[in-house]
Design a protein around this nucleic acid. Structure first.
Ligand code: FES
Ligand code: FES
Lengths: 141, 141
DNA sequence: CTAATCTTGACCATTTTAGTCAGGTATGTA
DNA sequence: TACATACCTGACTAAAATGGTCAAGATTAG
């Protein structure tokens, strides 16, 4: 199971953004330079974050992005959902009674994978951007 | 983040094996038929499980595989490790002070990804094959 | 002997990832 | 008004990972 760079970048970029957006919009160019993430890739990512109403954009000179919500209301779940970083422990559809690869029934370990998915998602639901900001200011233990 | 079929198959196959190995070795062919997993793929998987001393093999007619340990001592961690299903939340090396892609320092969200990795691995460390057997008996009735 | 099984290694199609590239369009400022 | 800054969009691609298949052989019970 691995976390993609896209998901990592989305969170990192938003933490960066959250730190600086008090006064002015933050440009992707700045984030790119500060965090060492490709500008072109960031643009793809922020396009998704915008569609999901996590950030707002301001065009033109001196423009950039600002958060569209309180950092406390932006959970990792929301961020990951926005950039299609989903937790998938199975192939089969949840609604369907069928198993993976169109098998007639669910497999004998199915409950386990459901549990695992819940376990991971719980982590994402309990972390907000606010937590990450605090966490980082404290230089943390 | 997604769990690979390889990891899922390994666990499913071992649960199947654990159910039947009381008397005789269990052939991969049987597991393949019961669980609907490609025989050739199972062979790759069991080769790794054997190298990691999770199962023993018995060759020849009436041969097959048997568990090499008590189901209680086979954790998901062990199984996943054996088949290279690792939890990776970052690209950078843990030992190194450098960040992802050879950056000079770790990123500002690094702690988060470490936490996440621990959170997931904890789940795997607390589940044994025994748990899955019990679990399954309960739900079967 | 022969059928059932494990053993090994090569091979491959498809999908995903992590970007790059090449254009736009909008807008504050000089 | 010119122009630099920044967002916006879509196409493209190299490399890796995934989820297998295929072929050929070695062991051993019956
Ligand atoms: S994981 Fe899909 S059938 Fe169990
Ligand atoms: S995840 Fe590698 S530097 Fe933070």
């Amino acid at each position: 199971m691995k976390l993609t760079s896209r998901g990592r970048y989305a969170v990192t970029a938003l933490v960066d953004l959250a730190r600086f957006d008090n006064i002015n919009p933050v440009s992707l160019r700045d984030i790119s330079l500060r965090q060492g993430i490709s500008l072109d890739y960031l643009e793809q990512i922020f396009s998704k974050l915008k569609k999901n109403e996590i950030v707002k954009s301001i065009r033109g000179t001196q423009g950039g992005y600002v958060l569209n919500k309180n950092p406390n209301d932006i959970k990792l779940t929301n961020i990951f959902h926005a950039v299609d970083e989903k937790v998938k422990t199975v192939q089969c559809k949840k609604e369907s009674k069928k198993g993976c690869n169109g098998k007639a029934t669910k497999c004998i370990t199915h409950n386990l994978w459901d549990e695992l998915e819940v376990h991971i998602n719980t982590f994402f639901e309990n972390k907000s951007l606010k937590d990450l900001l605090n966490n980082n200011k404290e230089t943390r233990v």
